[in-house]
Amino acid sequence: MAGTLAVSAVLPSFNAVLFAATKPKKGPWYGIAIDIEKCIGCGSCAKTCKIENDVPPEPFFFRSWVEQYTIKKDGSINVVSPNGGIDGFTQKIPDNEIEKTFFVPKMCNHCSKSPCVQVCPVGATFESPEGVVLVDEKYCIGCRYCIQACPYGCRYMHPTKKVVDKCTLCYHRLKKGLNPACMDNCPTKARISGDLNDPDSEISEFIRKKNVYVLKPHLNTGSKLYYNALNQEVR
């Protein structure tokens, strides 16, 4: 009894993966929630993202994209993302061979313990006071260490600017009171973003009510992209 007490006295309280992030006391703290059960794989998010943010149209540069996972009856996994899903998906595997299939929209997780921010040698990528991970294109030296450090493949080298580029959660829209372009243009409202600091926000409620999951939790990146109904095969 005494021993238990002593241990519990020194033991700190551990944070759940979902709350791994240390929120600021004041001001908004942005997170993202994606409902896989609502995603129809139309690719509107990926398409509007490219246009809104002047991402080069070639199929090698994405701030946001959609993957189709197919788990076949024989146990094998097949994943596709033709042009990031921008042109939609055509089902290639016949229905009778499929055990399970679903779409997974991907984008920057805006981690609160970002591996990419950690490794930037000059402070050109950083977390804004609102918890948005940004790149300063006038300061980036283009060493691409951050691309290597991102476990989610969310960064790319901009082919003409020669600096690293990534999702800004449409910071320019957030600051004007708008939603990110990908969220606004989702036809089924499968993706939302919002203030995690506000307990009444749509996203806080989403996280509370649903059994949400983050990608690669074992890497402890403090990801703030929460998926509902994510399959464990997704990486």
Partner: peptide
Amino acid sequence: QYGHYRGNSLNEIAALPVKYVG
């Protein structure tokens, strides 16, 4: 100003034009 980065870059990014007007 706010952390180990150029504080002005926040305003520069925030000033980018909005294309999808709603």
